[in-house]
Design a protein around this nucleic acid. Structure first.
Lengths: 151, 151
DNA sequence: TTTTCTGCAAATGCTTTGCATGGGA
DNA sequence: TCCCATGCAAAGCATTTGCAGAAAA
């Protein structure tokens, strides 16, 4: 599947065009964000590159994530207390389903948000520019684990 | 309209039943949360009671909000960076429309979330227990202010 | 060589916790 | 009187910022 590589290349071109450099650390972070569907946190990104770059600081990861966010190449999913998760695979607003057990985040199929957004705009008078739709619950694995414990 | 008072009384009864006390500060915080539709932050609540209780600490407001949250009487709207906003008027999940200009939060009418939630559950295998739907944009007043500036 | 990037440490901002004092019931 | 609640101060955490040295281009 060429899509993932295309996405990575696109971001790399965009960085080059704007005069940013491609350090090995930046490239590693970039690959994770552009190619994984895991919606990783900064700590998770840091853990994933630890084998190759053991001294990479949280600050470096934060700075790179912020840069990509400001370029519109990464979507931040902030939560009240827990740390933010990042989506560089699909950086445009879309629904997320979040497991309260294991913390995994998946993308369900759902296409009707644009229509709903227009409806809300009409009802409230707001000019709506973005949205956020999250569902919280237990994934099937965590449901099973819970059943095991209850036995 | 008796609804607002009813809601306040209901919470007061619930607190009494559980052995919690009704300090004047707690009552003031409670009134704001149960009766206003402003979705205030802790800082805003503190500002609103300042005239009557000038020495009330943030900790006290946080403790009261947390207590009401744990009783299911207040809904917390957490954001990534900004401070949380609280809804004690309608503590059950419902859509919010948030102005990026002035920070106001309003409740649009929308009833179809239960159906959507079931659809997502079927598609993903999650057992969904809660959700969050936010729209971001500019309220009509902030749209007008923006136009004034652009002239 | 120039300028950006990294990574340490310090700073920030919201929220929570600990604890002595105050005050409902 | 008995505990719970308040409010100060300190601690916690995620994130941001400052800066000197490292390293892309």
């Amino acid at each position: 599947m060429a899509t993932k590589k295309d996405r990575l290349d696109r971001i790399i071109q965009s960085l080059r065009k704007k005069g940013y450099r491609l350090s090995p650390q930046r490239l590693a972070i970039l690959k994770i964000l552009a190619q994984s569907r895991e919606h990783p946190s900064v700590a998770q990104i840091r853990a994933m590159i630890k084998a190759d770059f053991s001294t990479t600081s949280p600050a470096t990861v934060y700075k790179n994530v912020s840069l990509l966010k400001s370029m519109g190449e990464v979507l931040e999913l902030g939560f009240g207390n827990k740390s933010s998760r990042y989506d560089g695979y699909n950086p445009h607003p879309h629904p997320h389903v979040i497991c309260n057990g294991c913390g995994r985040i998946v993308d369900p199929e759902y296409k009707a948000m644009a229509r709903l957004s227009r409806e809300i705009s009409r009802k409230t008078g707001f000019r709506i520019t973005s949205h956020r739709l999250d569902f919280f619950g237990l994934c099937s694995e965590c449901q099973n684990k819970k059943k095991q414990i209850e036995k």
